[in-house]
Design a protein around this nucleic acid. Structure first.
Length: 484
RNA sequence: GCUCCCGUAGUGUAGUCCGGCCAAUCAUGAAGCCCUCUCGAGGCUUCGACUCGGGUUCAAAUCCCGACGGGAGCACCA
C-alpha cells in the first residue's frame, strides 16, 4: 500500500472537487435590498477567485422574488460594488425575468405528482407537517391540483389563501426538510420591475434550485445556514434527474463593531442618521472604499480566511494589516496636527525643513518649509505637554528644542540627541491648511495639515504618527477619512 | 422539543480524509530591542492553541465513543 506524501502547505483556496478548467460555472446571488456590505464580499470574492483560477463563468443572479425587500437602486449598486471589488461578472440574471420558467417547472411537478396546492390556513398546514402528517390537499389528484394552480396564476386566490407545495418526505426525521412551499401569492406589494404582472412568486428554495440547474452551475458556495435548504432543493434535483452541483457550505461570519443590516441602514438613511450608503460608520462596500480600503486587501483577507464550515469572527486588525501592506508603499507622508497648540521657537532667526514624501522612496522628492522669525509652529497639545515635562523634544525634520522657563529654545539639528532619549514629535508651520479627518466612528478630528498637492485627492496618504487616511479634498480646507 | 453542522493561541489559518517527519505552520495582535529621525515600513526576540473524558494503538490534533461548548434550520424571507 502506498501512502500519499504529506502535502505542501497550501496557498490560496483549497481545491474544490471536479474542478475542470474552463467548465466551472459559479454564481453570486444577492437579494437586491441594498448595496453590498462586508458580509457579501466573502462569497463574491471566493466565487470570483475560483472562477479566475479555473477559467470559470461567474453569474451574478439578482434574487428579487420578494417585492417587500427590494430597493430598486440595488440593481445598479450591486454591479457597481462588484466592479469595485474586482469581481469579473460574465453574466447577469434577474430572477423576476424568469417567472415563466418557474411556472413551467411547477406544472411539470404537478404532473409528476410531486407537488400540490394547499389552501389550508398556514398554521394548520405547519402543525400537520410538524407531526409528519399530510394536509387534505397532499393527495389530491393531478387534475384538481393543476386546476387550482392555474387559478392561483389567474389571481383567483387572495394572498395567503393558497400555496404551491413541493412534496419531499413527510416522515423525514428532520422537520426542516418536510414538504416545503415552492410558490406563494403576493398581491399587496407590486414588484419594482414587473409591477402587478405576476401574483404568484417563487420561494427562494424553488427558484434557486431551478436556476442553479438551468444556468448550469457546477459549484455552489453558500453559507451553512443553507444546509437544510440544500437538502430540500435536492428533492427537486432528484425528481427531474438533474445533475447536482457540488455544494460547499462555509461558516457564518460575525463582524464586530459593524453596522451591516441593510434594512437598518436603509431606515437610518431615511431619517438622516446616516449620510448615505457610503457613510463611513457603515460596513458597506462603498463605505470601505470611501475610507481608503483597497479591494485587493479585502480579497486577500477572504482568500486567507478560506472556506471552512467553522464560524468565524471577522478581524479588523487582520484586514487593516492587509490593507496597510498595500497602501503603505504608495502613501505619501504628511504632517497633520490635531488638537493644535501654537509653539514659538526662540534662539534662531530662520529654519529650513526638508522631509521625504515617502521614507522608502527618496526619488519621490521632499516637502520643504522655510520658517522665518518669529518662528511659530503648531503641535499636538498632548505632545507639547509630554515634551514640556521631559524638558526636551525633537521636532521631526526640523530641529531639537529644550524647554526653559516655558520657552522653547532651539538646540540645533543634530540627530545624535535621539540617543539621549529625545522623543520625536511632528508639527506644522504657522500658516498652513485647516483640516478635518472623519473617523470611522463619525467623530471629527480638527486641526492643521501641511499644504498638500491637488493630486492627493482621492488617494490614501499617511499622516505621520496618526494613521492612513483617504483624502477627499485638499483646499481650502483639507477633508479626509480615516482608514486605519 | 426535533434535525443537522462545527470545535487548533486574543483573532484568522495550516495540519485532520490516508495516525509517526506536529514538544503543532503562517499571518495578525501584544510586549521588547535594532534602525540618523513616524505610534509607518523593515530586521530581531518573546508571549500564546490541539474543548474535556474515556477507548484503540508501540504511537492520537489526526481513528472510535461519550460529554461539554458554539452555530444553523424546523417561514406563504433570502
Amino acid at each position: 500500500m502506498l501512502k500519499r506524501e504529506k502535502t505542501e502547505r497550501r496557498v490560496g483556496l483549497p481545491e474544490l472537487p471536479n474542478m475542470e478548467r474552463g467548465k466551472v460555472v459559479m454564481r453570486f446571488a444577492p437579494g437586491p435590498s441594498g448595496p453590498l456590505h462586508l458580509g457579501h464580499t466573502r462569497v463574491a470574492i471566493l466565487n470570483d477567485d475560483y472562477c479566475r483560477n479555473y477559467d470559470g463563468k461567474f453569474i451574478n443572479r439578482m434574487e428579487d422574488t420578494n417585492p417587500d425587500k427590494i430597493d430598486p437602486n440595488a440593481y445598479d449598486m450591486i454591479p457597481e460594488d462588484l466592479e469595485w471589488l474586482g469581481v469579473k461578472v460574465h453574466e447577469t440574471v434577474v430572477q423576476s425575468d424568469r417567472f415563466d420558467i418557474y411556472y413551467d417547472v411547477a406544472r411539470q411537478l404537478i404532473n409528476m405528482g410531486k407537488a400540490y396546492v394547499c389552501t389550508c390556513p398556514a398554521e394548520d398546514w405547519r402543525a400537520l407537517k410538524e407531526k409528519g402528517q399530510p394536509c387534505p390537499h397532499h393527495y389530491e389528484d393531478v387534475a384538481t391540483t393543476m386546476d387550482k394552480f392555474e387559478k392561483m396564476l389567474a389571481g383567483d386566490y387572495e394572498e395567503e389563501k393558497a400555496i404551491f407545495v413541493v412534496k419531499t418526505d413527510l416522515k423525514h426525521p428532520n422537520p426542516a426538510i418536510r414538504d416545503f412551499v415552492g410558490l406563494r401569492i403576493v398581491k399587496s406589494t407590486p414588484h419594482p420591475l414587473k409591477g402587478d404582472r405576476y401574483c404568484v412568486y417563487p420561494m427562494m428554495n424553488f427558484s434557486v434550485a431551478i436556476d442553479d440547474h438551468f444556468l448550469g452551475l457546477t459549484h455552489v458556495l453558500r453559507g451553512k445556514d443553507h444546509l437544510n435548504n440544500t437538502q430540500r432543493q435536492a428533492y427537486l434535483f432528484d425528481y427531474f434527474g438533474w445533475k447536482v452541483p457540488h455544494y460547499t457550505h462555509y461558516g457564518l461570519v460575525s463582524v464586530p463593531d459593524a453596522i451591516l443590516k441593510t434594512s437598518t441602514v436603509g431606515k437610518g438613511i431615511k431619517t438622516g442618521e446616516y449620510s448615505g450608503w457610503d457613510d463611513v460608520r457603515l460596513g458597506t462596500v462603498r463605505a470601505l472604499a470611501k475610507r481608503g480600503f483597497r479591494p485587493e486587501a479585502i480579497r486577500n483577507y477572504w482568500v486567507d480566511c478560506g472556506i471552512k464550515e467553522t464560524d468565524v469572527e471577522f478581524s479588523w486588525d487582520n484586514i487593516y494589516a492587509y490593507n496597510k501592506a498595500i497602501v503603505d508603499k504608495t502613501a505619501n507622508r504628511y504632517f497633520f496636527v490635531w488638537d493644535p497648540v501654537p509653539l514659538q521657537i526662540c534662539g534662531v532667526n530662520e529654519l529650513h525643513s526638508r522631509a521625504p514624501r515617502h521614507p522608502d522612496h527618496p526619488e519621490l522628492g521632499n516637502r520643504e518649509f522655510q520658517l522665518n522669525s518669529p518662528i511659530v509652529i503648531h503641535v499636538v497639545e498632548k505632545d507639547l505637554n509630554t515634551a514640556m515635562e521631559a524638558g526636551k523634544v525633537r521636532l521631526k525634520d526640523l530641529g531639537n528644542v529644550e524647554f526653559r522657563s516655558g520657552k522653547a529654545l532651539y538646540q540645533g539639528n543634530d540627530l545624535a540627541v535621539l540617543k539621549e532619549g529625545y522623543r520625536i514629535i511632528h508639527w506644522v508651520p504657522d500658516n498652513c491648511t485647516p483640516a478635518t479627518v472623519i473617523m470611522p466612528t463619525g467623530e471629527r478630528k480638527d486641526g492643521f495639515v501641511e499644504t498638500m498637492p491637488k493630486e492627493e485627492e482621492g488617494k490614501v496618504v499617511q499622516f505621520e504618527r496618526f494613521g492612513f487616511v483617504k483624502v477627499e479634498k485638499v483646499a481650502p480646507k483639507m477633508l479626509a477619512y480615516f482608514t486605519h
